[in-house]
Design a protein around this nucleic acid. Structure first.
Lengths: 221, 221
DNA sequence: TTGACAGTCATACGTTCGTTTGATATCATA
DNA sequence: TATGATATCAAACGAACGTATGACTGTCAA
């Protein structure tokens, strides 16, 4: 919220990682976060042991207890680091004098930008969703801000006749499904297509594909 | 494969659960499978203990070792039971003298049908995908059949001028993203919208929404 | 009646888990 | 130089884990 009002004044979108400069150093705490990120993403919370994390980070086993108290609080801190910056960026693109469909396109591109900077984000998101229970705090907060914001843009577009009729929330989820699902399955896609999933050209192709699909799905004709 | 040729002759789509009659009884083996299903879906493989499963099933701890040898083989048997019947059904709808876009719509409806009969399927799927590694055998087999089959339908539609240009594999994934992602997030949707996620009317609304979005996304104009 | 077999059971094995403990190291401040 | 706060370390704790073991029960053909 503090960031939000500041950025509105400057006219620039919120930075992708506002805290990178101050917290991105190689302190023990950050080594743990950096090591835990791909492990939690690939093996899940229960499939990753504290020993896995600390040995990957090259720190002592007790460092997790000292810096994060428990494994779960480490997980939540990491989740906040991953999904926290996304909602303000989405909200920023819902404002301004831009056609609703163009706002949605910019949001989709911003989500892809965020995913490129945080390639593990889709894995964290869908693991949280798969549980069926209420997701963890950072996810609930991010979704609670992003979903209504995007649905509002879609509803405005419907009033203007630019976006097709339909439940704005469902249309929002259909939109967000594209970056999340396409990136989640990009390993399988790359294997089928015989390309490198981390190739920037592949990323760019996926982004353009998703934008085209989303615009076609929403556009009123 | 055996089923497939049989069904082609009869002209009826493959049953949703061909083995339900013979294996759906309350034997210890099936009690274990039925109890493991929601537990693996909600808590994941590592988050579910053999003791969780056997006590939920009301059977002895050793029954898993006796009937499935290991926990992982139990998981794979369950995964096969969940995703195994899907690929033949998708393949069946790719055949016949039907417009490509209508084939895709029928496939989307069939996937929703399958998900309604197996509500845990999206959770199993995305957990497998989130790992980043090659998914388990049943998933690889199902995707290896469903993806090319659907991409072929889309490519045929593109040749006819009925479906927009674009990578058929990416368009297939964008299509499958709708049922999987919408059902994965249906708990959150229901909470936001204040409705019951298991209400058949909600299911029907989601299906119609997804069909509309998919047709609009693919249709050539 | 007997023997073999499929299935179920309580119990225990060795390992790994998250967390805790107490000692030690580093360093700015008094 | 002393002191207190911050940080790291090896070691250990009890609990929970997946799996293995051997006894027991029922069924059915010989």
């Amino acid at each position: 919220m503090k960031h939000q009002s500041r950025y509105r004044k400057t006219g620039a979108p919120p930075s992708r990682r506002p805290e990178a400069a101050s917290l991105g150093d190689a302190s023990t705490r950050n080594r743990i976060l950096a090591a835990a990120r791909p492990l939690f993403a690939e093996y899940g919370f229960n499939g990753t042991s504290v020993r896995d994390i600390t040995s990957a980070a090259g720190v002592n086993l007790s460092a997790v207890g000292y810096h994060f108290v428990t494994k779960e609080l480490l997980y939540l801190a990491l989740l906040q680091e991953i999904v926290g910056p996304l909602a303000p960026r989405i909200e920023w693109f819902t404002r301004g004098d831009v056609a609703p469909l163009d706002k949605i396109e910019r949001i989709v591109r911003a989500v892809f930008d965020h995913i490129r900077a945080n390639p593990d984000m889709p894995a964290f998101m869908v693991r949280e969703m798969a549980s069926g229970r209420t997701p963890s705090g950072p996810i609930v907060q991010a979704m609670g801000r992003a979903l209504p914001a995007m649905a509002g843009v879609i509803a405005a577009g419907q009033q203007q006749g630019a976006i097709r009729a339909g439940d704005p929330i469902l249309l929002t989820l259909s939109t967000l499904a594209q970056p999340v699902y396409l990136y989640l399955t990009r390993g399988a896609v790359a294997a089928v297509a015989g390309v490198d999933a981390n190739d920037p050209a592949v990323h760019a192709r996926i982004v353009e594909h998703a934008v085209t699909v989303v615009r076609a799905a929403l556009e009123q004709r």
